[in-house]
Design a protein around this nucleic acid. Structure first.
Length: 683
DNA sequence: TTTAGGG
DNA sequence: CCCTAAA
């Protein structure tokens, strides 16, 4: 049935490009079942359009080793790859993927920001404020990881669906193109993250010696995975982690071909999940077991993947309900929502209890230091508290969040340099000058000589109140980091054009433009805004994004732990109704390619479909954006090359644009003519 | 919510 | 990109 559908819709289905609005509407709002079909078709289409091509092109070996069922799928892919353009009969242009383009385009991931995570929010509430930074990146990883467990479940239970085709993921690496590889054989995303979140975590754990309990691996595991043995974490799994932490910006191509539609399920799985699930599905097209389990014993996916999956269930819950178009929320966003934390490196811990549900909200202590660096950590919640039988206290640091960073960078600096600067700042902070503080129920445990038992840390009921903080080693605040030689980069303004707001010398928190009369509040407000709003760069999950999104740059007044502890969690009120224009995100050539290809297939006037088809995972691209882009593409194609601006679009693409545009225009006209005389519509 | 177009 | 009428 699926295949049939594919044929009708994906390749021979051009007959009905212009479904009457009513019909289209009906289709869209139709029964769930039909939508599923749609989705499946979409999956094949996508396969055909991208994944298949890439896979087949890049690594034939990848297909050769598949099972017979896989083979079928791949044949289908092959067919689709050989699809012809409906209007000129010429084969569709294959997606070209050289190393460079891969690096830039073939990666889409979703950014998980703290603000989108309920669980995290909870933590935040407990914290009063949450800070992110590199940690956000880590948290993201964390989140996505959990997500996948559920995904996996889906994968397994719905394996027959088959709509989850394989997917080609190419890791892209900001600033490290060499890292980008298309590994079709494994269909994994190559770690391309500019920052090794894991190692970061490791570093934190190692350098900070945050876990006095014991130094076994469990205490140093950066990711929170409930069911995964600690031992599975180390190096080998880092790639997995990074894999997820990718950012989807600037590399929205390959992955933009998502098989899942928000519309269809009203909740779109995390991209990372999708990717992984697809990988699994591809590998074991029909072998996936029906049973639901965390460890996926029957899933023969790469070991890493397996491991990977096991970590993500819990987070999913938090995520899915938050799955919305950020850009739509943003407009009337009201900062009064959840509070975020600023300042402070935050760490999260998870107990190592393999059977327990570790995802309970944990407490997150918060500590602020001299207004320069604050730190806090989150320990996994009640159930996460766990004591091994040998009286060891096992904790897993889920993540650390980087606290305030002060950065000065010229207005003229490039985004790239900003990223690097932030990275440097983060690195500098993490690299040294930090020590770890232990907080128990919000109070600092100062006596280093006390045993955990004496302190009560080893007690189950205390573990959830355990927190770690990163503090400046030198008791004095760290001087602002200078990335360049210019103005202070205002934290709260991250979501704004970086150069828009000149720093207010002296009073940092006052520099935040906010109706708020209370500086701290203002900070929160801004934080929240950026937190909920992926506008800044929902994309670049890489260093910058994480840091920025995390409001790590936000300076905060020094406060005592106790003081903070009593601050109401929901300090709403002040709202920052800064309806800011979305940042400009020029379409990359790869995106254009994807767009062109989608339009070639779907025609103009079906932007929603185009969006779902080719940019489903590119959250920052709305169908309006795509429509606009097409408009400009057509215009661009018509003007002389000299008049064109921005990143040059290959003439070949522009030609295709014109061709497709002309074709679909004709079709539209034809269709309208047909409609005029009488309603002869076939469906 | 989507489309279609002007700004 | 934004805004918005119209569907």
């Amino acid at each position: 049935m699926v295949m049939q559908k594919r044929l009708d819709y994906g390749f021979n289905g051009y007959q009905f490009p212009f479904m009457p609005r009513a019909a289209r509407s009906a289709r869209r709002r139709g029964s769930f079942g039909s939508r599923v079909e749609d989705k499946q078709m979409c999956a094949f289409d996508l396969l055909a359009s991208v994944a298949g091509k890439l896979l087949l092109k890049k690594g034939t070996t990848s297909t050769s080793s598949n099972t017979s069922t896989d083979k079928d799928q791949f044949e289908a892919v092959n067919d689709s790859v050989k699809g012809e353009c409906p209007y000129d009969g010429k084969p569709f242009k294959e997606v070209t993927c050289d190393e460079r383009s891969c690096d830039k385009s073939f990666f889409v991931s979703e950014i998980l920001s703290l603000g989108h995570d309920h669980r995290c929010k909870e933590d935040l509430h407990m914290l009063n404020e949450v800070n992110s930074g590199v940690a956000s990146l880590i948290t993201s990883v964390d989140c996505s990881e959990r997500l996948d467990v559920e995904k996996l479940g889906e994968c397994r239970s719905n394996n027959s669906l088959g709509s989850i085709a394989n997917k080609v993921d190419v890791g892209s690496d900001y600033g490290k193109p060499d890292k980008c590889k298309l590994d079709s054989a494994t269909r994994q995303v190559v770690n391309g993250s500019g920052i090794d979140t894991c190692s970061l975590d490791y570093k934190m754990a190692r350098d900070g010696k945050p876990l006095p309990a014991n130094s076994d691996s469990s205490t140093k595991v950066p990711l929170c995975g409930n069911q995964i043995p600690q031992s599975s974490f180390p190096a080998a799994s880092r790639d997995d982690v990074n894999l997820i932490s990718k950012d989807d910006d600037e590399k929205p191509f390959g992955c933009t071909y998502s098989f899942t539609s928000k519309k269809f399920f009203r909740r779109t799985p995390h991209i990372g999940d999708q990717r992984i699930r697809k990988i699994l599905a591809t590998r074991h097209w029909k072998k996936a077991p029906k049973s639901k389990g965390v460890t996926l014993p029957h899933c023969n996916a790469d070991k890493d993947m397996k491991t990977f999956f096991s970590y993500r269930k819990e987070f999913y819950k938090c995520q899915r309900s938050e799955r919305i178009y950020p850009f739509k929320k943003r407009k009337h966003f009201d900062c009064s929502s959840a509070s975020n934390s600023d300042g402070g490196i935050c760490s999260e811990f998870l107990s190592d209890n393999p059977s327990g549900r570790n995802n309970v909200d944990g407490s997150c202590s918060y500590l602020k230091m001299n207004g320069a660096i604050g730190a806090s950590s989150t320990v996994s919640g009640q159930n996460t508290s766990f004591q091994s039988r040998d009286s060891h206290v096992k904790l897993r640091i889920r993540s650390f969040r980087v606290p305030e960073l002060f950065i000065e960078i010229p207005e003229s600096a490039t985004v790239g340099s900003l990223k690097r600067t932030v990275m440097e700042a983060v690195t500098a902070i993490l690299g040294g000058g930090l020590r770890v503080g232990v907080l128990l129920q919000g109070k600092k445990v100062r006596d280093d000589n006390k045993s955990l038992l004496q302190t009560g840390i080893s007690q189950d009921n205390h573990l959830d109140a355990l927190g770690f903080s990163l503090e400046p080693h030198s008791s004095k605040s760290l001087p602002p980091l200078r990335g360049g030689d210019t103005p202070l980069l205002l934290p709260g303004d991250i979501s704004q054009p970086l150069t828009s707001y000149p720093p207010s010398p002296g009073v940092i928190h006052n520099s935040i433009r906010s109706p708020s009369t209370e500086p701290h509040m203002a900070n929160i407000c801004n934080i929240i805004e950026s937190d909920h709003d992926s506008v800044p760069s929902p994309t670049d999950m890489s260093v910058d994004k994480s840091t920025m999104d995390c409001k790590a740059l936000i300076p905060v007044p020094a406060m005592s732990v106790e003081a903070l502890a009593v601050v109401p969690v929901h300090r709403k009120s002040k709202r920052c109704k800064t309806v800011q224009r979305r940042i400009r995100r020029p379409f990359s050539v790869a995106e254009v390619e994807a767009l062109v290809q989608a339009v070639e297939k779907l025609g103009t006037g079906r932007w929603r479909d185009v969006k779902l088809r080719a940019f489903d995972n590119a959250k920052h691209r709305t169908y309006v954006d795509l429509k606009d882009k097409w408009k400009t593409l057509v215009h661009t194609a018509r003007i002389s090359p000299q008049q064109r601006r921005g990143e040059p679009v290959p003439q070949e693409l522009l030609d295709r644009v014109l061709t497709a545009h002309a074709y679909w225009s004709r079709q539209q006209a034809k269709h309208q003519l047909k409609q005029q005389p009488e309603t002869c519509f076939v469906l």
